[in-house]
Structure formats: structure tokens, C-alpha cells
Simulated assay, not measured.
Amino acid sequence: MDQELARLNSEAARLAVQFVNGQPRAFHRLVLLFAPRVMRIVRKLVSGYHDGEDLYNEIWLKVAQNLHKYDPALPFHSWLYRIASNSCIDFLRKKREIVLEDEQLLLHVHKHPAETVKSPERFLVEKETHTELTALMDNLNETDRLILTLRFVEGMSYEEIGSIVGMNKNTVGTRLFRARKQLKELLEKHREERRMADAAY
């Protein structure tokens, strides 16, 4: 855990206790601490501005309703992300929509290092692949999509992801490997189908 996140967790624990003890203004300050991180996860998982806003507000409402259950001795961000992840999974199961926009995932799927300077041709190829991957993400189940997002968007460790989704780190690693493999196979199949369609004309 980096120093900034440790500082946020410490401050959040203090504010959580204040809120539970009857200081409503503490909750507003608590939201300000983690609002960018929660919104970033929501934006990566949910397509549609209004859907994202509704889900974001729903997450914080659940936090307020359950803050009395939070143990200040534990990292606040893990507890918060667990609520956020469950809300996102519930939403995705209903909407079946996902957007994952992250260059690290793109690079990992193709297993090539980042280039310092990209040619226009290279940029267009990567942009096209990025678009294809975004569309193909809907073929993964909700938990795998969430694990990918926490890993490649939030940069969380296997242990942190496991504490949020209720898995040990080995299971998280296995799910990540399978999800990346499935995405790559889906991408290859999609491109082959497109080549065959183009050849028919």
C-alpha cells in the first residue's frame, strides 16, 4: 500500500468514527477523500453518464447505511471497494454493459513492451484493437471484468483484489490468466470472422 493510500485510510477511519458518533459533516469529508477513486472504477465498468452517476450515488448511500459495520482497524479502501464492487456486479448483471479502457490491458494481451514513440500506423492499430477489446469484454462474466478492472485500472495486488471479491490470491491469479486468455481468443475469432466476411465481397 502506498503512503498516500495509507494516509487516506487513516483519515477515513477517523471520519468514519466521527460520523457513526453523530457528526454528519464527517461523511461529506469522507466522500471527498475517496470520490475520485470510486468514480474512476465506476467509469471504467459502466457505460453511460447517467448510469454511472446513479451507481456512484448508490454506492455512497450504501456506505452511509453500513458505516457502523466498518472496523476502523482495517483498511478503509478495501471495505469501500467491496461495497463498490458488489454494486457494480449487481448493475452489470442487469445491464450487461461494460467499458474497460486501459492501455495496460491492451499491452498485456499482446505481450509487447510500450513504445516511447508510436508511429501513426501503430497508433491506429492499437486504437482499433482497444475498441475491439472494449466490445468483447461483455462476453466475460461480471466478476472477471471486475477483477481485470481492479488489477489494470486500479493497479491493485492479487491480495487486495482477493479481499474485495472474496478469493485467495492464487484464485485471483488464475481468474486473471483465464480472462486474458479468453479475451485474446475472442479477439482472434472476431478478426477471423471479419476477414472471412471481407473476403466474401
Results as ranks from 00 to 15, higher is better:
residue 84 A to P: 03
residue 84 A to S: 14
residue 85 S to N: 08
residue 86 N to F: 07
residue 87 S to I: 08
residue 87 S to H: 05
residue 89 I to S: 09
residue 89 I to R: 10
residue 90 D to S: 09
residue 91 F to G: 00
residue 91 F to Y: 11
residue 93 R to D: 14
residue 93 R to T: 07
residue 95 K to V: 04
residue 96 R to Q: 08
residue 96 R to N: 05
residue 97 E to A: 03
residue 102 D to I: 01
residue 104 Q to G: 08
residue 105 L to D: 03
residue 105 L to A: 02
residue 106 L to W: 02
residue 107 L to M: 09
residue 107 L to S: 06
residue 111 K to A: 04
residue 113 P to I: 10
residue 113 P to M: 03
residue 114 A to Q: 10
residue 114 A to F: 06
residue 114 A to Y: 10
residue 115 E to V: 15
residue 115 E to M: 13
residue 115 E to P: 00
residue 116 T to D: 05
residue 116 T to V: 12
residue 117 V to C: 08
residue 117 V to H: 10
residue 120 P to M: 02
residue 121 E to W: 04
residue 123 F to N: 11
residue 124 L to A: 15
residue 126 E to V: 09
residue 126 E to Q: 14
residue 129 T to C: 07
residue 129 T to L: 14
residue 129 T to G: 05
residue 131 T to H: 15
residue 132 E to H: 11
residue 132 E to T: 14
residue 133 L to N: 10
residue 135 A to V: 13
residue 135 A to H: 14
residue 135 A to P: 01
residue 136 L to C: 00
residue 137 M to G: 12
residue 137 M to R: 06
residue 137 M to F: 10
residue 138 D to I: 14
residue 138 D to P: 03
residue 138 D to A: 13
residue 139 N to V: 04
residue 142 E to F: 02
residue 143 T to R: 11
residue 144 D to M: 05
residue 145 R to C: 10
residue 147 I to Q: 07
residue 147 I to P: 07
residue 147 I to V: 11
residue 149 T to P: 08
residue 152 F to W: 10
residue 155 G to V: 03
residue 156 M to W: 09
residue 157 S to H: 01
residue 157 S to L: 02
residue 158 Y to Q: 04
residue 160 E to M: 00
residue 160 E to I: 00
residue 161 I to S: 05
residue 161 I to L: 05
